[in-house]
């Protein structure tokens, strides 16, 4: 490992560009969600039959984001229970 030297600034290091990446992701997600949104209208405004919760499971985008956030929150919640010092077993 050498001492950190003043090397060239990378494109990704600018906070401005990091924001750009974030907005690109938002736009991409928005585009991907279009089929789901259309489907959602279909479910909400269907003229016959009752609204079924099961049909919501077809919305993979919502499911993906929810699963991920749920996972992180479960982990955060379990952390105080499971966390010990690094040399716990030594």
């Amino acid at each position: 490992m050498t001492e950190p030297e003043r090397d060239k600034k990378y494109w990704l290091e600018e906070p401005k560009n990091q924001n750009k990446v974030f907005y690109c992701l938002l736009v991409l997600c928005g585009l991907l969600a279009i089929p789901d949104v259309v489907k959602l209208f279909g479910v909400l405004f269907q003229t016959e039959g009752n609204f079924e919760l099961k049909s919501l499971l077809k919305f993979y985008s919502i499911y993906g984001a929810l699963c991920y956030v749920a996972l992180i929150f479960i982990a955060k919640w379990l952390r105080p229970v499971l966390l010990r010092k690094e040399d716990y077993y030594d």
């Binding site: 992701l25 997600c29 991907l32 993979y60 991920y68 952390r79 010990r84």
Partner: peptide, 29 residues
Amino acid sequence: VQILLFAVLGFVLLMRYKIYPLEQPATIL
């Protein structure tokens, strides 16, 4: 792609609003 990209979105949002648990040296039981 929907599932994966929205999971990434979840991560980015959690990082942006500092909800993602900080990494720290530890032993996890």
